[in-house]
Amino acid sequence: MEFPAPHIHHAQPFHTHTIILLHGRGSNGLEFAEELFSSTTSKGKNLASCLPTYRWVFPTSRDRWSTTFQEDMCSWFDAYSLNDIQKRQELQKDGLRESILYILDIIEEEARLLDGQLGHIYLGGISQGMATAIWAFFAGIGTGQVQGPLGGLLGFCGWLPFAQQLEGLLDKSTLNGPIIHQAQRLVSTFFFDGIAGREMSQANQPEDSSVLSTPVFLSHGADDEWVSVELGRQASRIIRTIMDRVEWHEFTGAEGEGHWIKEPEGFDQILQFLQT
């Protein structure tokens, strides 16, 4: 089954940057865009109005079977449980692999539109969309499809699949010398051995750790009733081991039972990150 066409909010009057944002489970690109742009900064403007030359790309996942809910849902992969993220993790692999390949193709197309300026492309998502975006970035490094720093990674109210395996791998390894290089290699090897299978091939090229200078923005509601803030903290902790620049923001009182970005403070923070 093909992925639906992404929802695009076009840049005006010209295109200088692209932001690719992935929706959560059960949503879609258009719905996520409408929710995001209905929220405002402290100046009463939404993010698109503040950044008119940015092109906003909101991909939509295809429908896939949910083992938990016993029905087809619009989701990037099949996540069995967020109360115990270790439980039946093998269900995530096929969807993650397929979705990651799709997102990497979108990054490649946006880079073409921007004359190869990867530093003008941002990738992120909310909830399951954050989980997919982070692994797409790691996979892009391993496959060689991302060969330089992006403008930034953004994650809201999400988690990192296979976090405990990664954390154990990084903790048990003796990271002597250039730690970033070794962490990059460990994560890349884990992805290809544990998730990607034969459908993706690892690039045979010298490691370029400059890609890991991509700035990272993560935020999570401490009162999030859907994805525990502990999962967000865990993701932040692991990503800090791998990446050079990671921002972590916690808040309370957001809409959606805490499973959203705090308005307007959170949108002020996002805008500042995008303008830095």
Rank of each mutant, 00 (worst) to 15 (best):
residue 25 R to G: 10
residue 26 G to L: 05
residue 27 S to A: 06
residue 29 G to M: 00
residue 30 L to T: 04
residue 30 L to C: 10
residue 33 A to K: 00
residue 34 E to Q: 15
residue 35 E to C: 10
residue 36 L to A: 00
residue 36 L to W: 00
residue 37 F to R: 08
residue 37 F to C: 08
residue 38 S to E: 11
residue 39 S to I: 08
residue 39 S to W: 09
residue 40 T to D: 14
residue 40 T to H: 07
residue 40 T to K: 09
residue 41 T to I: 05
residue 41 T to L: 07
residue 42 S to H: 07
residue 44 G to V: 01
residue 44 G to S: 06
residue 48 A to D: 11
residue 49 S to V: 13
residue 50 C to Y: 03
residue 52 P to Q: 02
residue 52 P to R: 03
residue 53 T to R: 14
residue 54 Y to P: 01
residue 55 R to L: 03
residue 55 R to Q: 08
residue 56 W to L: 00
residue 56 W to Q: 01
residue 57 V to G: 11
residue 59 P to H: 03
residue 60 T to L: 03
residue 60 T to F: 02
residue 63 D to K: 12
residue 64 R to E: 15
residue 65 W to I: 01
residue 66 S to W: 04
residue 67 T to P: 05
residue 67 T to F: 02
residue 69 F to S: 15
residue 69 F to A: 15
residue 69 F to L: 15
residue 70 Q to E: 13
residue 70 Q to Y: 09
residue 71 E to C: 11
residue 71 E to K: 08
residue 72 D to R: 10
residue 73 M to E: 12
residue 73 M to A: 13
residue 78 D to Y: 02
residue 78 D to C: 09
residue 79 A to Q: 12
residue 80 Y to K: 07
residue 80 Y to S: 06
residue 81 S to T: 00
residue 81 S to G: 02
residue 82 L to H: 12
residue 83 N to R: 13
residue 84 D to E: 12
residue 87 K to W: 08
residue 88 R to F: 12
residue 88 R to H: 15
residue 89 Q to F: 09
residue 90 E to A: 12
residue 93 K to T: 03
residue 93 K to M: 05
residue 97 R to T: 10
residue 97 R to F: 06
residue 97 R to K: 04
residue 98 E to H: 08
residue 98 E to S: 10
residue 99 S to H: 13
residue 99 S to P: 11
residue 99 S to L: 09
residue 100 I to C: 01
residue 103 I to A: 03
residue 103 I to P: 00
residue 104 L to I: 03
residue 106 I to W: 05
residue 106 I to D: 05
residue 107 I to G: 00
residue 107 I to M: 06
residue 108 E to D: 14
residue 108 E to R: 13
residue 109 E to S: 14
residue 109 E to H: 09
residue 109 E to N: 05
residue 109 E to W: 00
residue 111 A to M: 09
residue 112 R to M: 14
residue 112 R to T: 15
residue 113 L to Y: 08
residue 114 L to H: 00
residue 114 L to V: 01
residue 117 Q to S: 15
residue 117 Q to H: 15
residue 118 L to G: 07
residue 119 G to D: 13
residue 120 H to D: 12
residue 120 H to P: 06
residue 121 I to P: 06
residue 121 I to C: 04
residue 121 I to S: 00
residue 122 Y to R: 02
residue 122 Y to V: 07
residue 124 G to A: 04
residue 125 G to A: 12
residue 128 Q to S: 11
residue 128 Q to D: 12
residue 128 Q to T: 14
residue 129 G to N: 07
residue 130 M to W: 15
residue 131 A to S: 14
residue 132 T to F: 00
residue 132 T to P: 10
residue 134 I to E: 01
residue 134 I to F: 14
residue 135 W to Y: 10
residue 135 W to S: 05
residue 137 F to T: 05
residue 139 A to M: 04
residue 139 A to V: 06
residue 139 A to P: 02
residue 140 G to M: 04
residue 141 I to S: 12
